[in-house]
Design a binder for these strands. Structure first.
Lengths: 157, 157
DNA sequence: GGCCCGGTACTCGGATACAGTTTGTCCGAGTCCAAGCGG
DNA sequence: CCGCTTGGACTCGGACAAACTGTATCCGAGTACCGGGCC
């Protein structure tokens, strides 16, 4: 089980976008320079967030990415699942119905107890991530940070 | 984020071994036939559980795998982490210290808030899995199952 | 008959190929801004 | 001087290759059992 590296990038990107003024945008190039990561690949991953409804993108000059809705309405889970997919990492393939020890279909009416326990753990993980919003993140950093972030994102030295 | 398919195999293998009489063993071949999975690959993965201290292996005829300790002392987390590794799927690479928006080292004394939230979620997942033992699994299945499992594992038609 | 010895078959264990996903890169479609031209 | 047109540059979006982890397989090392031979 391993999360892509881009997950970290996008979490930080979203947190940075949350520090912008309402309506302001940042381009993929600006974000890539801000974090020193491959611009093209970052752009590709940002599209995942757009598809996931977390970010909104506008093309053309002065365009870029911005949060699709208020920072208080975007949870860390939204971001992670948009990047990495929302499927349970544990996939029950009904192994109990195969091979020499196959169970009869009647015995498999209720889902496998192991799959259920794994799903519960996944839910615990999801709930933990869903408990934090981008607004919480912004509130946790120093009050002077947003102004600096905005300045450095737009490119002024 | 995706868990290997073998995770399901080994969870079921461990659950089956927990249904054996104390001291009894089952070989990789028997388990593979029981679940209809590639025997060689299953054997390789069972080694992970041996290295993780979950199973004990004895070579030679009548040999095979058995639980390394009492089923009540083996949690699902022990198995999953033995197979898949115990590292946090989210790896903080301190992206905040790189690029144009790099923070000063003093500001990075405390760990990144995002990494902390992700670690909390991982802990919630771990705790959920650690709450269930193999003994709990065995207790949840019908009382008649262990006898049948033993019969079908050993190969009697 | 009991004990020792050797062969055999079965077990795990690690080293070795194949495939799918993640990572990284590229170029094209669309759009807004700005300058230049005409009225 | 003002408005329209046209060019340009900048943006995202999807299509196209390399690298790494997970998947699958094989053969070798070791060990307990079983049969035969010897005392």
């Amino acid at each position: 089980m391993k999360l892509p590296v881009s997950t970290e990038w996008l979490l930080h990107c979203a947190a940075s976008l949350a520090q912008l003024e309402a309506g302001a945008t940042a381009s993929a190039t600006q974000l890539a320079q801000y974090f020193d990561v491959p611009a093209a690949y970052l752009a590709k991953q940002l599209q995942s967030l757009v598809r996931g409804g977390v970010l909104a993108a506008t093309t053309g000059p002065r365009g870029g990415f911005r949060l699709a809705r208020d920072a208080a309405r975007i949870t860390l889970l939204d971001i992670v699942e948009a990047v990495d997919g929302a499927s349970d990492p544990y996939e029950c393939r009904e192994i109990r119905q195969r091979g020499r020890g196959a169970l009869s279909p009647e015995e498999c009416r209720s889902p496998c107890i192991l799959a259920r326990k794994m799903a519960e753990a996944h839910d615990a993980w999801r709930q933990s991530l869903a408990a934090t919003t981008l607004a919480d993140i912004v509130a946790a950093i120093p009050a002077s940070a947003p102004a600096r972030t905005r300045a450095r994102l737009t490119g002024a030295p």
